[in-house]
Each structure stands twice: as structure tokens, then as C-alpha cells.
Nucleic acid binder design. Sequence first.
RNA 1: GGAAAGGUGGCAGAGUGGUCGAACGCGCCGCUCUCGAAAAGCGGUAUGCUCGAAAGGGCAUCGAGGGUUCGAAUCCCUCCCUUUCCGCCA
Length: 428
Amino acid sequence: MLDIKFIKENKDIVAVALKNKNREDVNLDELLSLYEEKKSLRQKLDELNQKKNEAAKDRNIEEGKRLKEEGETLEKNFAEVDKKYLKAMLSVPNIPSLDTPIGKDENENKVLRTWGEPKAFSFKPKEHFEIGADLGIIDNETATEVTGPRFAYLKGDLVQLHFAVLNFVYGILGNKEILKKIADDAKIEIDPKPFLPVMPPVMIKPATMNRMARLEPRDERYHIDSDDLYLIGSAEHTLGPMHMDEVFEEKELPIRYAGYSNAFRREAGTYGKDMKGILRIHEFYKLEMESFCLPENSYKEQDFLVAIQEHINKVLNLPYQIIICCTGDMGDPDHRHIDVETWMPGQNKYRETHSADHMAGFQSRRLNTRVKRADGRIEHVHMNDATAFAGRTLIAILENYQTEDGKVAVPEALVPFMGGKTHIEKAF
RNA sequence: GGAAAGGUGGCAGAGUGGUCGAACGCGCCGCUCUCGAAAAGCGGUAUGCUCGAAAGGGCAUCGAGGGUUCGAAUCCCUCCCUUUCCGCCA
């Protein structure tokens, strides 16, 4: 949610943002007139309440009764206008950052930089689902029978590889020296405070989901009817609200979490796309970074999160490119959206493996997560979330590290986390 | 799942229909005292909206929402949460 005063004073900026985000359905004039109407009704209501309070204090029963009746219509009107106003407010997307490219869809995203050379193979590299099926480590067929399409069993060494990457990444996120070096190498001046590991709940109340601005699109969410709970689509969904209605001390920030959880997505409207393997499945595993910082540090914070993502890919020797999403491809709550796309030799293209969302104060305003500044002012914190490790990195490892004999080598950095194993073997 | 108690300011905790935005204490901030600190004393110390140049005023908020009443922290209803006992359980 944006600040209504900001909208009022910067209507032209917001209008441009709406146009660029393809959200011209949002009617700013209507929103602002609802705001004025709400304010004037509120004032009338306040005046009436003042009289009511005075009458009650004087035990003036007759006058009190009269005012009470008079107030009923006013209250009803106010409630109606307020409801409309809130609905309109919630429909306004976040403003894109100044460095966000303007564009209609993903074709106008921009490559900021690339790292690594796609490896030349002496044979035709397979796609991850072929490797997975051949080695018996990804089983879609059984999952489809047992649960349904777009689910998978991970088996054998792939399971161990998963936890190897997880531990490897947690090792980075919890280590102040490594984080400092990552920041220094990327020339980002930032407090390298480590991430606190979290295993968050995977179910969430609708009201909380809404406060995270993540309830929509509802088509994309799984809902548990018996208890009116949603399954989270990312650990972000339950990490972000950990501090709702709280006021931080300035010196407490930044606060960084590394939350590991299953993530559930219905993938509505993607029928037929990426049906095989684990690229696009309904339930996957993800380690997510979530941070709360001072507003003036939030760009650096996102840059830092991206630097961490890049560091992970570099150490794993996975070629990648960094994409900044254009206005038309970014989410409603995003202020700046950066993706890491990792080279997938089997598909012969870069595919998204990480994303980094800079939300500015958009979520914290809804969550009411604030910070008391040194000078006593209270303002909303800025929030960032970004992937540290998701199942798609396993895909990248399988495809980049496949060998001609049908096996997959274990990246050097992960061997210690694999009990010394250097290759992924065929499962029975 | 059954039974009971309860949710009040940063913390702790009083308040069962009006004089309560809320006692007392702790904490925090300022001042006095002091070379300085501690102690002591004095004063201040919630959030949001709104009017105002400011001083200051108004409204709302005692878990959330609704209701009764001229008047609700206090009574009623629904929901959320916490604690205790019983049951169940990885």
C-alpha cells in the first residue's frame, strides 16, 4: 500500500507508474475524491461525537438520544465510503524505481550483467528431467499417480545434493566474514549482519496473507477449507509478517532472516508449460532471504541480496545473467525486481533461478512494521525478499555438471557437504 | 476435542457503567543536586487521524469486529490469541 498523502501530492508520478505497470484500470481521481469524501465525513463525525461526548458528560439524556440518532446515518455513510476508499487504495500498485526499465512484458526486461561462459559439451546435453529419469532421482510418474501432475519425488543422491546446497548456503548466510567479503567485492557499503535461520509455518491466515499484499492472485494459492488457512507460496509470506504492528529501534536494523520451507503454487494458467521434472511444480523447497532495513538503505540491501545470489552461483560455477524486470513484468507490490537467470545447457538458455524483490514501504505500511528513528520520528521500515536457494538450482547443477557417461559431477564446493561423494550415482 | 481463567501503555499491573486515555511501580527522557556518577527530588513520557503558523484543540484506540446504553476498558454476541487441567499425538 502506498501513502495516500504521497499519492495526493505526487499524482503525476503515480499515474506514470500505473501506465508503466499496465494498471490503467486504477482510477486515481476516484481514489482521491473518495479520500476527500472520507475526510470530510470523518470531520463531521468527529464534531458530532464531540457533542455526544459532551451531552453524555452532562447526563443530558434527551440531547444524547437525539445526537445518537443523528449520527447513525453519518456513521453508515462513513463506513461505506471508507470501505470503497480502502479497496481503491489496495488496488494501487507500488511505484517502480527510477532505474526500472519501462516495458510491456518480459521481452523488455534488461540484462544488467552476465557471469561465466556456458560450458561447451562434447555431447548433446540432456535436460534435467531426462537426467533425473535416467538416474532414477526425479520421479514424476509415481508422483502423478499418487498426488497428481506437477509433483515429483526426489530420490537418492539428489536428496543429499539438495541438503548439501542447503547447508552450503546456510553456511554463507550465517557467516559474517563471508558476507562482508561479498559486500566488499560488490563494493556495497553495508552492515554484513548475518541472517537468522528460520523454519517458518507453511500455512497462513487470510488476513495476514492480505497484509503481505500476497493474497492475490488467489488462483495461485492453495486454501485449506477446514481451517480457513492458505498454504504459503514462499517462506516470505510467513517471514514478512513476523514483525507486524511492531516498532523497531533504529539500531536493531537491519534484521535478516533465512527461512527454509516448502512452497506451494497452483500454477494456474500454465497448463502445458514446463510439465516435466521439477522446474515448475506445485510443491517445491526454498530457502528465502527476508530483510527489514532503514529506508535509506533499501537499495543497497537489495544489491547485497543479489550479490549473495551471485556469490552462490559463482562458487558453484554456474553461469548466469542478472536481469532487471521491466515495469510490465514486475509484481504489483514490487518497487524494483531483479532476477538471476542461470544457464541451463539442456534447454540451451538462461532460466530464472532466483529473484530479489525490493518492496520499499509497500508491505510494511500494510503490516504496520515501523522504526523509531534517532530523532524520534516513526516511519515504515523497508522490506526486501530474495531467493537464496530453490529447487531450480538443482536443475542447473544437473544440467551443467552432467557427464558423457550419464552421471552428474558434484560441484567441488558441495563435496564436503556430500560426505565426500564426487558424483551422483544412479538410484535403484 | 472437553473444561476453566484471562488478554489494559516499553514492562509490570490496578481499574466491573459516567468524574478513565486510563492509578501505583519499573524503565526511558529532561532538569535540580554533583568535579562527575550514583542516590534523591521535580517535570515529562502511547499510537493513528484531524484542525491550527504555533501554542494548543478535537476524534478514535484498553486483543479484533459487532451490539446494548444518553454514556462502555467495564455488560452482551462472534472471532483471534494466551494460560491451566483433561484427552489425543510426531
